[in-house]
Amino acid sequence: MYNMKDLVLNIIAYAAQRDVDVSQLCKLSGINPGSLKNLTPTHTQLQHLWANAVHLTNDSLFGLHLGESLRATALGIVGNLVQSSATVGEALTHAAALVHLITNQCSMKIDQGKGTFKVHLLPAANPENHTAFGNHQLTELLMVIVIHELDGLMLKKIVPKSVLLPYRVIDPAEYERVFRCKPGKSVDEFSITFHQQYWNEPILTANHELQELLLKKISSLPSPKSTSSTFQTRIFNHLIANSYLGLSSLNDIAANFNMSPRTLQRKLKEEGASYQLIAEEAKRSLAEHYVSSGSFALKDISWMLGYNDLSAFSRAFKRWTGKAPVDYGA
C-alpha cells in the first residue's frame, strides 16, 4: 500500500537521476540519509524536500517533470485501478477514492459536463500540512500522472481538451509539452478536461501487464556497455523505466532533465555515446526481454517499442539477435 514515504523516496530518486547529491538533499531537508528504509517523513520534511529538490536541480518545474517520469505503477496504485475497473470512467472514479493513499494534501473530484468530463485536484484546506509552493509541485505531479496513465489504460496517447491552473505559468511551452495542451489560468482551479468519448473506453490490461513485468525485471536488464559513463547510464535507465508507452524522444528527455537537446547531446558525446545508440540498446534489451517472456502478442510489443508496423519490428529484432521474434529462444 502506498504512503507518503514512497512519494519522498521517489522525489529523492528522481533528484539523484538529475545528478543531485542525495546526502546533501536529505540533510538540507532534515532527513537522515542513513535511515531512508525506515523513514516516517513529516509534512514539514516533505515541504523542505520539494523546495530543496527544486533548488538543487535548478528546475522550478521539478514536480511537473517528476510526474512525467514517474508512472503510477511506481506508486502502487495502477494495479488497483486495472483490477477493479472495466472502463476509463470507472478507473478515474476509483482513482478519486485512492488519492488519499498518495497524500492527504490533495483530493480528486470528477464532474460530468456536456460532451466532456473534468478531473479536479483539490488542495487540502489545512495550512499546517502544506505550503502553496509544495502544494503546486504535488498537484502538478498528480495532474501529469492522470494524463499519462490514461494513455496506458487505453493504449493510446490522448490529448486533454483543456488544463486549468490557478496561476500564470513561468514556462508555457514546457507546460504545453507535458500537458499536451496550452494551460489556461483560472481563479482557484486545478483541473483537466477530457472529451466524453474517453469515459466509456474499455481498459486494456495487457499494457500494464507488460509494465509490471518490466518493473519486476528492470534490475536484471543490461546497462550500456560503458559502465563508467554515468550520464548515459542515467539516460538509459530513464528510457527503460518509462518505456511501456514507447521510448521518449531526445527532445522530451532533454526537457525532462531541464536542459536543451544540444546540451544533452554534448554531455553524451563527452562520454563517447549518443542518444541514438542508447535508444537502440534500450529497444534491443526490452525487445529481447518481452519476446523471451512468451506472454505477450508481438503486435503489442512492437507498438510498445515505437514500431507502427510489425514487419519493421521483426526486421529490427532479426538485426539485433540474428533471429525472427517467433524463433527467438527456440
Results as ranks from 00 to 15, higher is better:
Met1Lys: 07
Met1Phe: 08
Lys5Tyr: 06
Asp6Asn: 04
Leu7Ala: 02
Leu9Gly: 01
Tyr14Gly: 02
Asp19Trp: 00
Val20Gly: 02
Asp21Cys: 02
Ser23Lys: 01
Pro33Glu: 01
Gly34Ser: 06
Leu39Glu: 06
Leu39Met: 05
Thr40Gly: 01
Thr44Tyr: 03
Leu46Gly: 10
Gln47Cys: 10
Trp50Leu: 12
Asn52Leu: 03
Val54Asn: 10
Leu56Met: 14
Asp59Gly: 14
Leu61His: 07
Phe62Gly: 05
Gly63Cys: 06
His65Arg: 10
Leu66Val: 06
Thr73Met: 04
Leu75Val: 08
Val82Trp: 03
Gln83Lys: 11
Ala86Arg: 07
His94Asn: 14
Ala97Pro: 00
Lys109Tyr: 09
Lys109Met: 05
Ile110Trp: 05
Gly113His: 09
Val119His: 03
Val119Leu: 03
Pro123Thr: 02
Pro127Trp: 05
Pro127Phe: 03
Phe133Thr: 09
Phe133Glu: 14
Asn135Cys: 14
Leu138Phe: 11
Thr139Ile: 12
Leu141Val: 08
Ile145Glu: 04
His148Gly: 11
Leu150Thr: 12
Gly152Val: 09
Met154Phe: 06
Leu155Lys: 10
Leu155Gln: 12
Lys156Trp: 00
Ser162Arg: 05
Leu164Cys: 15
Pro166Tyr: 11
Tyr167Ala: 12
Pro172Cys: 04
Tyr175Gly: 15
Arg177Gly: 07
Cys181Ile: 11
Lys185Ile: 13
Ser186Met: 01
Ser191Thr: 02
Phe194Gly: 02
His195Val: 08
Tyr198Phe: 15
Tyr198Leu: 12
Asn200Val: 00
Ile203Glu: 00
Leu204Gly: 07
Ala206Asp: 09
Leu213Lys: 02
Leu213Ala: 08
Lys216Asn: 08
Ser219Asp: 13
Ser219Leu: 05
Pro222Cys: 09
Pro222His: 05
Lys225Val: 15
Lys225Pro: 09
Ser226Met: 04
Phe231His: 15
Gln232Ala: 15
Gln232Asp: 10
Thr233Trp: 08
Arg234Phe: 12
Ile240Leu: 15
Leu245Thr: 14
Gly246Lys: 08
Leu250Pro: 01
Asn251Arg: 00
Ala254Ser: 12
Ala255Tyr: 08
Asn256Gln: 12
Asn258Glu: 06
Met259Cys: 12
Gln265Trp: 00
Lys267Val: 06
Gly272Thr: 02
Tyr275Trp: 10
Leu286Ser: 10
Glu288Arg: 04
Glu288Asp: 02
His289Thr: 13
Ser293Gln: 06
Ser295Glu: 11
Ala297Ile: 02
Lys299Asp: 15
Lys299Arg: 10
Tyr307Ser: 13
Tyr307Asn: 11
Leu310Pro: 12
Ser311Thr: 15
Phe313Thr: 04
Ser314Gln: 13
Ser314Tyr: 06
Ala324Val: 09
Asp327Gly: 05
Asp327Ser: 14
Asp327Trp: 04
